[in-house]
Design a protein around this nucleic acid. Structure first.
Lengths: 137, 137
DNA sequence: ATGCAGGGTTCCAGTGAGGGGAAGGTCAAG
DNA sequence: CTTGACCTTCCCCTCACTGGAACCCTGCAT
């Protein structure tokens, strides 16, 4: 199978697949014309990678997960550890974003949003009343 | 004021402040020894930038906000528009992260996490049962 | 045989928002 | 005069790709 077909089946872009080969995540064969030739096993790996990336795992995590995926003697605890670590990072990001959202919503609510220059958003950013992040770091 | 003092007061790193000068967000004066000399107005700008960045605004948004901040004849609607656009982006990110979190939590819950190789997480990633992202794109 | 569209290949450069670190100049204190 | 803490510029590195140039290959119609 050529790279274009693999791209369609995995919903990855050809560029991305080449990149994944570059960094050693997959190693397709080569035809006599230098075209990449993907076996079923390559397709499985790339599908796996696409799903792991869609869940937000870093490439490094994906590499580790792929190694575990291919290791029949793995311990599921190793997989779960990676997953739990990632879950914690996701939670931290959500909390950060929710804090930003709350602060910015508060500021935006107080802003008239008309032709006048008075703007509580700018006042808040310039250090006016409330602290958008942490003042005492 | 030298860059180190400004860094302490703004909670920005010296590297970041130099970068902000590089991309034209601030333009401190220079002493005879080439040291940057920051005026109060520079300090205000950098404080503003630090807060805006802490709220997740991109550098481009920060530049626009800073321009509005300095423009006494601005319309607050221009500020609010940037803020609302950013709020939407934050909301979209939160939704994405929550979806990832839900899927991964579900997979992790079903994983024993012991010495055995059986792992619903890996099965889910390899395309086993549920779709982690969108199957029909 | 030729033309062309639509694959494929490599390589280089850029993204955002800085970070790391080298090599060197400057300043205040002892 | 030396030490250590500053400051300067410069260049490469990050992460996970993306875009584009320049070129080769394939299949089909003419």
């Amino acid at each position: 199978m050529n790279i274009g077909d693999v791209a369609k089946r995995t919903n990855l872009r050809a560029k991305t697949i080449r990149y994944y080969e570059d960094i050693g995540l997959v190693t397709p064969l080569r035809d006599t014309n230098d075209y990449r030739v993907f076996r079923d096993s390559d397709l499985h790996k790339l599908t796996f990678l696409a799903r792991a990336r869609a869940l937000g795992f870093t490439i490094d995590d994906c590499r580790a997960l792929l190694t575990l995926y291919e290791d029949e003697t793995r311990a599921s605890s190793d997989v779960k550890e990676i997953a739990n670590k990632h879950l914690e990072e996701i939670e931290a990001k959500i909390i950060d974003l929710q804090a930003m959202h709350a602060t910015l919503t508060h500021l935006a609510q107080e802003c008239a949003g008309d032709h006048r220059p008075d703007c509580p958003i700018l006042e808040g950013l310039s250090g006016g009343d409330r602290n958008p992040s942490n003042e005492a770091g």
